[in-house]
Design a protein around this nucleic acid. Sequence first.
DNA 1: GGAAAATTTGCGCCTGCTGCAAAATTTCTT
DNA 2: AAGAAATTTTGCAGCAGGCGCAAATTTTCC
Lengths: 213, 213
Amino acid sequence: MADQSGLRERKKAATKAALSGATLRLAMTKGGLDAVTADEIAAEVGVSTRTFHNYFPNKEAAFLHDFNEITGEFIAAVREYAAQRPIWDALRDACVGLRMDERFDIGQMQCREELIHASPELIKVQAGQFMELFAELLGIVAEATGRSTDDPYPRLVLGSALVTMKISNEDWVANPRGRTLGEAITHAFAQLEAGIARPLDGALAPDAPEPDA
Amino acid sequence: MADQSGLRERKKAATKAALSGATLRLAMTKGGLDAVTADEIAAEVGVSTRTFHNYFPNKEAAFLHDFNEITGEFIAAVREYAAQRPIWDALRDACVGLRMDERFDIGQMQCREELIHASPELIKVQAGQFMELFAELLGIVAEATGRSTDDPYPRLVLGSALVTMKISNEDWVANPRGRTLGEAITHAFAQLEAGIARPLDGALAPDAPEPDA
DNA sequence: GGAAAATTTGCGCCTGCTGCAAAATTTCTT
DNA sequence: AAGAAATTTTGCAGCAGGCGCAAATTTTCC
């Protein structure tokens, strides 16, 4: 029926992971996802092209598969924390709690970022996934703030949080500067909490040119 | 050579606008851009399908064409204002200065929003265009804040500003509530300037349920 | 061991997009 | 005004992506 026999489910999850992994690997070796075709990925895993498309609509989705896995955890965490603390803290803590830095190798994360930024199509698909995430979380945030989903405030909160999440992740991956990922995220969230118009501190920009006016 | 004879340039711009307009019109009448094909659009304008693809890579780009036109103005305005005032104010003023509400019919803007939200592909393409805009503006913002483009602060500023811009636009279109678009934008920017964690005021949510805890 | 359910696979088809070279149109020169 | 030059339009061929369908294969269950 549904998932009574966990074995079949596990096999499916395994091939899905294998396809996703092969996509990543091939994109790395060939220097860009655009240079990879669905046929190659399928061949790499030892499965037909048609089967690849049974699991993923396109190679971009395969590439971003584990991001989607994490998305589910993130939503669950936000929902849980939102009942216990202010929504801004809940969003921050859910983000920190993912502990991406412990889960992935930093070299691999850097590689992923480079590949994403090299492929316009991949950027688009990822942006689309963020929009989906926004839609899925908006109800939670609206309720937590006691506003309607039509109200701009919860939208601003959620939109800012997702942007902060993405930017602090990118920033830390590109330049850890001795911080943990959690610290980078916490600092970025604090910046928005204090008001975006003035920087919280200058310690983050050791190489910043001095303002020339 | 380049554009000495403005006539040819104007003709090209005219057909481009005609194609974009036809795309919009067809999407409206057929209740969704997904129900429209490139052939229909080309036929509507009296041009071959191949020519359509000379102007736009796909129908989504044609649909969002005038958004791109405005993007150029926006960048120019940010660059100009950034030399005169703090970057956050510059971004806000550039956004307000577009005066989208005077340029477009509000009914048409509502229609556009609905069509966008009904098409996942359109959402993706629009999100991709925002990423491009981000990349084009990042240098200006970094310089204005006296930071490097690697620094997370200018990224947070610009990301927050673009999110604020999009959300306040959507909000005003869906529910003007007697405000001008400029007022809605100004208020949203003020919210982020004051810190996102607490709402600036409750006047925006006349129908908000009272917080239940 | 055999029936039932589910997965994989091959095949054909359609759609969207691009390169290329010929045809049509516009602009420039004299 | 006529012809040359430049540019745009167009048709065609080709390719990759993606999907429906039904047969073949595998797995599960009794």
